[in-house]
Amino acid sequence: MNNAATHSMFYIAVLCPPEIDNKIQAHKVWMRERFACTVAMKSPAHITLIPPFWLANEREQILINTLHSLNTSVQSFTIQLKNFSHFSNKVIFAAVEENHVLGSLRKATEDHFITVFHDSIKPDDRPFHPHVTIANRDIKPGDFNKAWAHFEKLDYEQSFPASKISLLKLSPAKWNVIAEQTF
Protein backbone atom coordinates (compact mmCIF):
# COMPACT_ATOMS: atom_id res chain seq x y z
CA MET A 1 0.00 0.00 0.00
CA ASN A 2 1.20 3.50 -0.75
CA ASN A 3 1.50 6.23 1.83
CA ALA A 4 -1.40 8.67 1.42
CA ALA A 5 0.90 11.50 2.51
CA THR A 6 3.18 10.94 -0.49
CA HIS A 7 0.84 9.27 -3.01
CA SER A 8 -2.65 9.83 -4.39
CA MET A 9 -5.16 7.66 -6.23
CA PHE A 10 -6.22 8.50 -9.79
CA TYR A 11 -8.33 6.98 -12.56
CA ILE A 12 -9.15 7.87 -16.16
CA ALA A 13 -12.66 7.76 -17.57
CA VAL A 14 -15.29 9.03 -19.97
CA LEU A 15 -17.73 10.99 -17.83
CA CYS A 16 -21.46 10.97 -18.47
CA PRO A 17 -22.98 14.41 -19.05
CA PRO A 18 -24.74 16.13 -16.11
CA GLU A 19 -28.27 15.10 -17.11
CA ILE A 20 -27.27 11.41 -17.11
CA ASP A 21 -25.08 11.84 -14.03
CA ASN A 22 -28.15 13.21 -12.19
CA LYS A 23 -30.23 10.15 -13.15
CA ILE A 24 -27.47 7.74 -12.16
CA GLN A 25 -27.01 9.68 -8.92
CA ALA A 26 -30.72 9.14 -8.13
CA HIS A 27 -30.18 5.37 -8.45
CA LYS A 28 -27.12 5.60 -6.18
CA VAL A 29 -29.19 7.50 -3.61
CA TRP A 30 -31.85 4.77 -3.80
CA MET A 31 -29.16 2.19 -3.01
CA ARG A 32 -27.79 4.29 -0.16
CA GLU A 33 -31.22 4.83 1.42
CA ARG A 34 -32.24 1.17 1.25
CA PHE A 35 -28.99 -0.74 1.57
CA ALA A 36 -26.42 1.74 2.96
CA CYS A 37 -24.33 1.53 -0.24
CA THR A 38 -22.09 4.60 -0.40
CA VAL A 39 -18.86 3.65 -2.24
CA ALA A 40 -20.19 4.47 -5.73
CA MET A 41 -21.44 7.86 -4.56
CA LYS A 42 -17.86 9.17 -4.41
CA SER A 43 -17.61 9.25 -8.24
CA PRO A 44 -19.54 11.01 -10.95
CA ALA A 45 -21.26 8.69 -13.45
CA HIS A 46 -18.51 7.42 -15.73
CA ILE A 47 -17.07 4.63 -17.86
CA THR A 48 -13.64 3.63 -16.60
CA LEU A 49 -10.80 3.51 -19.13
CA ILE A 50 -7.96 3.03 -16.63
CA PRO A 51 -8.97 1.78 -13.16
CA PRO A 52 -7.73 3.46 -9.98
CA PHE A 53 -3.99 3.48 -9.41
CA TRP A 54 -1.59 5.02 -6.90
CA LEU A 55 0.95 7.59 -8.04
CA ALA A 56 3.52 9.68 -6.16
CA ASN A 57 2.24 13.22 -5.67
CA GLU A 58 5.30 14.76 -7.31
CA ARG A 59 4.37 12.95 -10.57
CA GLU A 60 0.86 14.47 -10.79
CA GLN A 61 1.87 17.18 -13.29
CA ILE A 62 3.53 14.56 -15.50
CA LEU A 63 0.26 12.60 -15.37
CA ILE A 64 -1.70 15.69 -16.44
CA ASN A 65 0.81 16.41 -19.23
CA THR A 66 0.51 12.79 -20.40
CA LEU A 67 -3.27 13.18 -20.58
CA HIS A 68 -2.87 16.35 -22.66
CA SER A 69 -0.42 14.62 -25.01
CA LEU A 70 -2.87 11.79 -25.79
CA ASN A 71 -3.33 11.77 -29.54
CA THR A 72 -5.77 9.19 -30.80
CA SER A 73 -7.48 8.56 -34.12
CA VAL A 74 -10.80 8.22 -32.26
CA GLN A 75 -13.35 10.89 -33.12
CA SER A 76 -16.38 11.93 -31.08
CA PHE A 77 -18.89 9.06 -30.92
CA THR A 78 -22.16 8.12 -29.23
CA ILE A 79 -22.39 5.94 -26.14
CA GLN A 80 -25.65 4.06 -25.55
CA LEU A 81 -26.74 3.00 -22.08
CA LYS A 82 -29.44 0.35 -21.98
CA ASN A 83 -30.97 -1.19 -18.88
CA PHE A 84 -29.02 -2.57 -15.94
CA SER A 85 -26.80 -5.54 -15.28
CA HIS A 86 -24.43 -6.82 -12.61
CA PHE A 87 -21.11 -8.52 -11.94
CA SER A 88 -21.79 -11.47 -9.61
CA ASN A 89 -23.45 -10.14 -6.47
CA LYS A 90 -20.97 -7.28 -5.97
CA VAL A 91 -21.71 -4.62 -8.61
CA ILE A 92 -24.93 -3.23 -10.14
CA PHE A 93 -24.55 -0.96 -13.16
CA ALA A 94 -26.17 0.73 -16.13
CA ALA A 95 -25.13 -1.38 -19.11
CA VAL A 96 -23.22 0.12 -22.04
CA GLU A 97 -24.17 -1.20 -25.47
CA GLU A 98 -21.28 -2.81 -27.33
CA ASN A 99 -19.16 -0.10 -28.91
CA HIS A 100 -15.95 -0.85 -30.80
CA VAL A 101 -14.92 2.82 -30.84
CA LEU A 102 -15.07 2.92 -27.04
CA GLY A 103 -12.90 -0.21 -26.97
CA SER A 104 -10.39 1.48 -29.28
CA LEU A 105 -10.34 4.57 -27.07
CA ARG A 106 -9.71 2.46 -24.00
CA LYS A 107 -6.85 0.58 -25.71
CA ALA A 108 -5.22 3.77 -27.01
CA THR A 109 -5.53 5.43 -23.58
CA GLU A 110 -4.12 2.42 -21.74
CA ASP A 111 -1.19 2.07 -24.17
CA HIS A 112 -0.39 5.79 -23.95
CA PHE A 113 -0.35 5.91 -20.14
CA ILE A 114 1.48 2.61 -19.64
CA THR A 115 4.33 3.93 -21.78
CA VAL A 116 5.02 6.65 -19.21
CA PHE A 117 3.66 5.07 -16.01
CA HIS A 118 4.48 1.36 -16.45
CA ASP A 119 5.51 1.22 -12.79
CA SER A 120 2.04 2.40 -11.62
CA ILE A 121 -0.41 1.45 -14.37
CA LYS A 122 -0.54 -2.16 -15.47
CA PRO A 123 -2.32 -3.59 -18.52
CA ASP A 124 -5.78 -4.83 -17.57
CA ASP A 125 -5.90 -8.47 -18.64
CA ARG A 126 -9.64 -8.72 -18.07
CA PRO A 127 -11.92 -8.23 -21.06
CA PHE A 128 -13.14 -4.64 -21.34
CA HIS A 129 -16.71 -4.52 -20.05
CA PRO A 130 -17.73 -0.85 -20.03
CA HIS A 131 -20.45 0.09 -17.54
CA VAL A 132 -21.72 2.92 -15.33
CA THR A 133 -21.65 1.79 -11.71
CA ILE A 134 -24.68 2.20 -9.45
CA ALA A 135 -23.36 0.22 -6.47
CA ASN A 136 -20.17 -1.71 -5.85
CA ARG A 137 -18.13 -3.41 -3.17
CA ASP A 138 -20.44 -2.47 -0.30
CA ILE A 139 -23.59 -4.41 -1.25
CA LYS A 140 -24.16 -6.92 1.52
CA PRO A 141 -24.69 -10.46 0.16
CA GLY A 142 -28.15 -10.60 1.72
CA ASP A 143 -29.16 -7.32 0.01
CA PHE A 144 -28.01 -8.03 -3.51
CA ASN A 145 -31.08 -10.06 -4.59
CA LYS A 146 -33.48 -7.42 -3.23
CA ALA A 147 -31.60 -4.62 -5.01
CA TRP A 148 -31.31 -6.59 -8.25
CA ALA A 149 -35.06 -7.41 -8.17
CA HIS A 150 -35.63 -3.63 -8.37
CA PHE A 151 -33.12 -2.86 -11.15
CA GLU A 152 -33.85 -5.83 -13.41
CA LYS A 153 -37.43 -4.59 -13.89
CA LEU A 154 -36.47 -1.03 -14.86
CA ASP A 155 -36.37 0.17 -18.45
CA TYR A 156 -33.44 2.51 -18.85
CA GLU A 157 -32.13 3.93 -22.09
CA GLN A 158 -29.90 6.96 -22.57
CA SER A 159 -27.29 8.03 -25.07
CA PHE A 160 -24.68 10.74 -25.08
CA PRO A 161 -21.83 12.00 -27.24
CA ALA A 162 -18.36 11.16 -25.97
CA SER A 163 -15.67 13.62 -26.99
CA LYS A 164 -13.26 13.82 -24.03
CA ILE A 165 -11.63 11.80 -21.32
CA SER A 166 -11.17 12.92 -17.74
CA LEU A 167 -8.49 12.39 -15.12
CA LEU A 168 -9.90 12.06 -11.60
CA LYS A 169 -8.11 12.24 -8.26
CA LEU A 170 -9.40 10.93 -4.95
CA SER A 171 -9.82 13.46 -2.16
CA PRO A 172 -10.85 12.11 1.24
CA ALA A 173 -14.56 12.34 0.42
CA LYS A 174 -14.86 11.98 -3.36
CA TRP A 175 -13.26 11.73 -6.77
CA ASN A 176 -12.66 15.10 -8.49
CA VAL A 177 -11.87 15.86 -12.12
CA ILE A 178 -8.44 17.51 -12.26
CA ALA A 179 -7.87 17.51 -16.04
CA GLU A 180 -9.65 16.70 -19.29
CA GLN A 181 -8.58 16.02 -22.86
CA THR A 182 -10.80 16.30 -25.93
CA PHE A 183 -10.34 13.71 -28.67
Rank of each mutant, 00 (worst) to 15 (best):
D138R: 07
V132Y: 00
F144H: 08
S76R: 13
E19C: 06
D124A: 09
D155P: 03
L63Q: 02
P17M: 07
F128N: 11
V96D: 04
T66G: 01
V96K: 04
L167D: 02
H86A: 14
K28A: 05
K90Q: 14
Q181P: 06
I47N: 02
T133H: 05
T115F: 13
A179F: 03
C16Y: 00
A56G: 06
A108R: 04
L49H: 07
E19Y: 07
N65A: 12
L167Y: 01
P123R: 07
P44L: 06
Q75P: 02
G103V: 09
I79D: 02
H27C: 14
F87G: 10
P141C: 06
F151N: 02
K146S: 15
F93K: 03
E97D: 15
N89A: 11
F93I: 07
F35Y: 15
H46T: 01
T78D: 10
T133E: 04
I178S: 03
A56E: 08
N71M: 15
V116C: 07
D119P: 00
K23S: 13
L63K: 02
K23V: 09
H86K: 15
K107L: 12
P17L: 07
F84S: 01
I139K: 04
N3A: 15
H112A: 12
L81Y: 04
D155E: 13
F128D: 10
T66C: 07
A94S: 10
E97Q: 14
F113V: 00
A179P: 11
S43V: 02
T66P: 02
H86D: 08
P52V: 03
T133S: 12
F10L: 02
H100V: 14
L167K: 00
A179D: 04
L55G: 01
H131R: 13
F117W: 08
P127Y: 07
P130W: 06
I47K: 01
I20A: 02
I134T: 03
F93W: 06
P127A: 10
A95T: 09
G142Y: 12
N176T: 08
I139W: 02
F35D: 08
I20V: 09
G103P: 06
T109C: 09
P141Q: 07
N65W: 11
H68G: 03
Y11F: 15
